[in-house]
Design a protein around this nucleic acid. Structure first.
Length: 720
DNA sequence: ATAGGGTTAG
């Protein structure tokens, strides 16, 4: 008899399923089924039918359907501990955690699966706190966790940095034998230790797991890769192959990053081959890592080839390409790709934006940078610290510390790096007081300054002539045992040297264990500024011991001889340098007008298409400047020649040509000039006067810092 | 009935 009922029920169930799929309204269909069920076979329900109906509810995401079934189960005397589990499971699958919890809390007895389901739900939705609370509740209810519980709960521990509790649960896993016997538990443990940064622990766990699989080993490789233990990552990958475990797209994705970090193009290409052979060539994650690998190895063309094969690059893929191109000095290409990404309607994130901005600031592309700023705002990243730092750097490098500060003040979170970026912006633009104020703020906020902070602060003092403040700070940094590098010392040597305190500067160098070329050269250029020929010769000999025939050194000394009128020596040195086939970098200036960059080289009067107009304007500007007191400073000419020729050579400096051009084009706003060398004294005093004549700000970035010329004076206070 | 790993930044 009973068998017959069952057969009937199964038939009903089939009918219900069919009915459900044919009905448009999910709510109606499941409720109608209920009415049918209640009328026809009130007391004939079985597990099978309920399961089937619940599945329907899940498909239709119908929580009211679940509630109906609950009522029905209750009516039919269905065993509570079984009905509860099923209902909780179904509610979770409908995303109704609230109702699932309500059911769960009302259950007198809970099956382990119910606990596990709830915990897994919380983990899946990154609600780690609730997952751990549930786990604790489970323990205090004397329910012993099983492999399912443990393999989920470890993720919550790492997410919340609960190392102590994690260790206790690990112990439990060991006692239960699950660490060894269950690869899910093993993987979760490996992943957890990796996230705690404990790759050694992770490896120990892995070694104990009996049957190792891809996921387990990949979790470890990821750990090594993310912690920068790249050699270990590659080794783990190799041993995986030896043990005949097939890598998959995640494995390739992580091991390739390590190859890139190691610049191990040999293994990189080998793994690329394996990837193709095993059919993961078109998996996006591995493709992205492949792209990154080639970019880190500076094989830009290969990376572009890989990128071309990617059908649907996502946000990460694009970002990887853009940031890699910027890192390889291919800023223009990076920005073209960034535009393409926007055209393809792939949303940028803070990684993308900071890379694009870095591209702009490397080339001081003010207009392009402002457009990217527009995109930053459009996508709501104005308060983001990564995009923000990019903007601060951009405006700093374009000579707009005011704009940089505006960005800085809107950031939602101030940290060491954004403060460093802002301090550095002030420093390179010569706003020492503002920089020091921010440094003080960093200290008051209890943030620990790092080596970049120290450099920025010292540079700020250096660029604004705050020598006393600089020395004081340097002493305090020494006392605080902050790691001071050669760069920090070089900054101090420059500061003291330019202030004429050459002996102190030299003393400082003797303090350094491994003084490098830059350090000595800095001292040498201070000798040049103060025309200390003997000291310069002594220093030069020292430098040539470390770096025989160093070009920069010889040029510095030769220029010193020139500025002190020792022309015989100059000629000697020039011929020596000619013998050594050394030649000077040509002096260049750039000016951006209407998104177009114009290049000018010193002494080159004819290659620009508008050279006629440029010379006309230049002559007029020089004449007007002379009326206001400009006199050529011939000590800036490093070659022996007729006085008029010296004047002519000064008039042909690249920044003068660039400014004359900008004046002719008569664009609104400030004139921005970029230079590859430092601005000379003659040009500096000329530009000051010109800024008064044309009543416009002229911003000049030389190889070391910014000069803001306004109404006859410069922000550097003639100290640079 | 319930479970594990990935790629981009200052």
């Amino acid at each position: 008899m009973r068998r017959d009922y069952n057969g009937g029920l199964i038939a009903f169930s089939r009918f219900f399923s069919f009915f459900a799929t044919k009905t448009c309204s999910p709510e109606l269909s499941i409720n109608s089924q209920f009415r049918l069920l209640c009328i026809t076979c009130d007391s004939l329900t079985t597990t099978h039918t309920f399961s089937q109906l619940l599945r329907q509810c899940i498909d239709e995401r119908s929580i009211s359907g679940i509630k109906n079934i609950q009522a029905q189960m209750l009516k039919s005397g269905f065993p509570v501990e079984l009905s509860g589990s099923k209902l909780v499971d179904a509610s979770l699958k409908c995303g109704e955690i609230g109702y699932a919890r309500q059911l769960f809390d009302g259950m007198p007895e809970r099956h382990i699966v119910t606990w596990n389901s709830i915990i897994a739900y919380y983990i899946k939705h990154r609600r780690s706190k609730e997952a751990v609370e549930m786990y604790r509740l489970m323990i205090s209810n004397n329910v012993l966790p099983d492999e399912y519980t443990l393999s989920s709960v470890f993720k919550a521990f790492s997410d919340l940095s609960l190392e102590k509790e994690a260790q206790r649960s690990h112990g439990l896993a060991v006692i239960l034998g699950l660490e060894v016997s269950n690869v899910f538990v093993g993987s979760a443990l490996v992943d957890m230790y990796v996230k705690f940064g404990k790759t050694r622990e992770a490896k120990l766990v892995l070694d104990r797991v009996e049957e190792k699989d891809v996921v387990l080993i990949t979790a470890l490789i990821v750990g090594y890769s993310q912690k920068g233990e790249d050699t270990e990552a590659v080794k783990a990958f190799q041993s995986m192959l030896v043990e005949k475990v097939q890598p998959n797209e995640y494995t390739y994705a992580s091991v390739l990053i390590s190859c890139g970090n190691l610049k191990d193009i040999g293994n990189g290409k080998l793994i690329h081959g394996l990837m193709v052979k095993s059919g993961f060539e078109s998996a996006l994650a591995s493709q992205t890592s492949l792209l990154t690998m080639y970019l880190r190895c500076s094989l830009v063309d290969d990376s572009l080839l890989v990128f071309k094969c990617i059908k649907y690059p996502n946000q990460v893929t694009w970002t990887s390409l853009i940031s890699g191109l910027v890192q390889n000095g291919r800023e223009e290409t990076a920005l073209i790709e960034f535009r393409k990404m926007m055209r393809d309607s792939v949303k940028p994130n803070s990684f993308t934006l900071s890379s694009a901005l870095r591209g702009c600031s490397n080339l001081a592309m003010f207009e392009e940078g402002r457009q990217v700023h527009g995109i930053v705002s459009k996508y709501g990243f104005d308060r983001d610290k990564y995009a923000g730092s990019g903007l601060i750097e951009l405006y700093g490098k374009c000579g707009c510390s005011d704009m940089a500060r505006l960005v800085f003040d809107t950031l939602s979170e101030v940290d060491v790096i954004s403060l460093n970026t802002m301090i550095y912006s002030y420093a390179q633009n010569g706003f020492g007081r503002e920089a020091l104020e921010l440094f003080e703020r960093m200290i008051n906020l209890g943030l620990q300054p790092n080596d970049v902070t120290v450099l920025s602060v010292l540079l700020a003092c250096n660029n604004s002539g705050l020598v006393e403040e600089g020395c004081e700070l340097f002493d305090s940094f020494r006392k605080d045992k902050i790691m001071l590098t050669n760069d920090h010392y070089a900054c101090m040597v420059d500061m003291l040297g330019r202030a004429g305190r050459l002996e102190e500067a030299e003393m400082l160098i003797t303090e350094v264990t491994n003084p490098d070329l830059v350090l000595w050269r800095t001292l040498l250029s201070a000798c040049k500024v103060h025309r200390k020929v003997e000291m310069a010769e002594r220093i030069t000999r020292k430098i040539l011991e470390i770096a025989p025939g160093d070009e920069g050194t010889l040029i510095l000394l030769s220029n010193l001889y020139a500025s002190t009128g020792k022309w015989k020596r100059v000629i000697e040195m020039k011929s020596k340098m000619k013998e050594m086939k050394l030649k000077k970098n040509p002096a260049m200036s750039w000016v951006e007008i209407d998104k177009e960059t114009h290049t000018f080289m010193a002494g080159d009067l004819f290659s620009h298409p508008n050279s006629e107009q440029i010379l006309e304007n230049l002559e007029e500007l020089i004449k007007k400047a002379k009326d206001l007191g400009y006199v050529e400073d011939k000590s800036c000419v490093f070659q022996d020649m007729e006085e008029t020729a010296k004047e002519r050579s000064l008039h042909q400096h690249s920044e003068k040509l660039a400014i004359a051009f900008a004046v002719w084009r008569n664009v609104g706003g400030s004139i921005r000039i970029l230079k590859n060398l430092r601005v000379c004294v003659d040009c500096h005093s000329w530009i000051k006067i010109v800024s008064r004549i044309i009543k416009r700000e002229i911003i000049c970035r030389d190889s070391k810092r910014f000069h803001h010329f306004r109404d006859g004076s410069c922000s550097c206070g003639d100290y640079w």
